[in-house]
């Protein structure tokens, strides 16, 4: 009996261990090794920190690195600001069928591939696009307006892509807040703002933190949206990784960039948890 249980346990664990080791741990160790070598001549490599030195001294790389980090945090913040009222409405104000319909409406855009969704934004925002034409027709612009290929366009795309991942955890936590607790907040003299600050937000904190972590990581690692909507003026760090690996075949520098991104996201997520005084276990569990 005991042996059987053991075999079952091993069998169940095998796919997980295989997945983790083959797809995550081994490639990452390999990447780390690649990032730590330097090409001396054809086929001859030496172990050194030269790649990291290059990444940290070249202003373009460094600037893109920080820009990506700050823009991702900004995108997370904007997503939270937009998603919170939406989630509050769905969880607390909408009743019955309306609640389900609204929730479904948030989900429907995700039935379409991300590529097609981003093209949708391009159709709206490009020089010959809908909004540009509309502005000319109304008379607010006398020539075609280009709204693509800048930071704002990219930000719109990032927020749009991330919305659902913020709304879902927020709706879940807000739904678990008893209506009478909110009423008690008002009954004891609180106004809308203080009830929000002292009761609703503290209660929704697990949802806010987990939603923010997911959205932040999605934004940081996003490749499609910055490439298509941001263009050449709004470089994203993932684009630099792609360039090193695919365009320039410089795997050493590409791997280094990859590791810098991993480190960055770990540090920021850790900081976010520290700032809100939560543990990863509480947030994810």
């Amino acid at each position: 009996m005991r042996n059987h249980a053991r075999i079952g346990f091993v069998l169940l664990l095998t796919p997980l261990v295989l997945w983790l080791s083959l797809l995550i741990i081994i490639p990452h160790i390999d990447m780390l090794l690649i990032s730590l070598r330097e090409r001396i001549s054809f086929g001859v490599y030496d172990t050194s920190l030269a790649q990291y030195e290059k990444a940290l001294t070249e202003p373009l790389y460094l600037r893109t690195f920080w820009r990506t980090a700050i823009m991702s945090i900004l995108a997370t913040g904007i997503t939270l600001l937009i998603a919170f009222p939406v989630a509050y409405y769905i969880a607390k104000m909408a009743k019955g069928r309306l609640q389900q319909v609204l929730f479904l409406l948030c989900l429907i855009p995700f039935y379409v591939s991300e590529l097609v969704r981003t093209f949708g934004w391009m159709i709206l925002l490009r020089e010959t696009g809908l909004i540009s034409n509309l502005l000319q027709w109304v008379g607010l612009a006398d020539q075609p307006v280009e709204m693509l290929y800048n930071d704002s366009a990219m930000m719109v795309g990032l927020v749009y892509t991330s919305m659902l991942f913020m709304v879902v955890p927020l709706v879940t936590t807000l739904e678990s807040l008893d209506d009478s607790v909110i009423e008690a907040g008002y009954d004891l003299g609180g106004n809308g703002l203080s009830v929000l600050r002292e009761i609703i937000i503290p209660h929704a904190m697990p949802g806010i933190v987990s939603g923010s972590i997911v959205v932040f990581m999605l934004s940081l690692g996003n490749y499609l949206t910055p490439t298509m909507l941001g263009g050449k003026d709004s470089l994203w760090f993932t684009e630099m990784i792609y360039n090193q690996f695919i365009v320039r075949s410089n795997w050493e520098l590409g791997a280094t960039f990859g590791f810098m991104l991993l480190l960055l996201s770990s540090v920021i997520v850790w900081g976010m948890l520290r700032l809100t005084g939560r543990t990863l276990q509480e947030t994810m569990g």
Binding site: D178, S180, E183, Y186, D187, G190, E198
Partner: peptide, 16 residues
């Protein structure tokens, strides 16, 4: 409600 000189003990108490 937040200005009325009336307070309420809720059915499930609604402590924060």
């Amino acid at each position: 409600p937040n200005k009325r000189p009336v307070n309420m003990v809720f059915q499930h108490l609604a402590l924060f």
